[in-house]
């Protein structure tokens, strides 16, 4: 893909700079800088509690107290309500499977549906079921009656229905069978080929390595490494220091 080889700085679709975030009085993120180019997949890595999920939530407008700047295609979205950010083309898949347990699979997808944006790929229910055949077989099952992994697939599917331009994926491979993890990886590559950008929080190095162009390693709420996936793989001492590989 030509887009993937563009230098990230050319025209980042998402640019985060000096991002700080708090839970109550505790500061969790300290001056995070991050960019995401169109069609790029960036893996946000780091130990438990490093602040990966917090970074994604801060970008999505789900935290009360955030400082710094977050630009989506040049427009500042910091401080905007979450729904506004979602409509601007940011999709969010949370880590704790927040599906609507009382709604059926089809209804869950309906909640995620948004008007089409010209510059993002169009997702239909059929296209989503092609990606997750399991879900296609249980269209009318209530979310609460699905297994953990099935719910995980549904969260991703639901977000895709919003035709996002950028997806924030929080540990999509967690709790999913190896076969499906492979499908997820293939899906992320598909999305990338369609021009979507993905910011992925991921602890599984094999998965992150297989799908991402760049890696950004967090430690205690600060960026410790930001570079191509290849350079990370080539320098095992970084992995040892920050990821405990």
């Amino acid at each position: 893909m030509s887009t993937a080889s563009l230098p990230a700085a050319a025209s980042p679709i998402l640019a985060v700079s000096r991002l700080c975030a708090w839970y109550g009085r505790a500061q969790i993120l300290f001056d995070i800088d991050l960019t995401l180019a169109r069609g790029e997949v960036v893996a946000l890595m780091g130990r438990n509690g490093a602040g990966k999920s917090t970074t994604l939530k801060a970008i999505m407008g789900l935290l009360d107290r955030v400082q710094g700047s977050i630009r989506l295609e040049g427009a500042d979205i910091r401080g905007k309500p979450a729904w506004h950010i979602a409509r601007a083309g940011l999709g969010y898949v949370p880590e704790d499977r927040r599906i609507f347990t009382e709604l059926t699979v089809m209804e869950n997808l309906a909640v995620g549906r948004q008007a089409r944006r010209s510059d993002a790929p169009l997702w239909t229910v059929d296209k989503v079921f092609e990606l997750f055949p399991n879900l296609g077989r249980m269209r009318n099952r209530r979310g609460g009656e699905m297994s953990g992994g099935e719910q995980q697939m549904l969260t991703v599917a639901r977000t895709l229905m919003g035709n996002p331009r950028v997806i924030l994926l929080d540990e999509p491979s967690e709790g999913v069978a190896p076969l499906i993890v492979e499908q997820m990886a293939a899906m992320i590559l598909d999305l990338k080929h369609e021009g979507l950008s993905v910011l992925l929080s991921e602890q599984n190095p094999a998965f992150a390595g297989a799908v991402s162009d760049r890696a950004c390693i967090l430690e205690k709420g600060q960026v410790q490494f930001d570079g191509s996936m290849r350079s990370l793989i080539d320098s095992p001492e970084i992995g040892r220091a920050f990821l405990g590989l």
Partner: peptide, 11 residues
């Protein structure tokens, strides 16, 4: 039940 889901490789 999935004891290590969501944990870093070292942990």
């Amino acid at each position: 039940d999935e004891p290590t889901a969501g944990m870093a490789p070292a942990e």
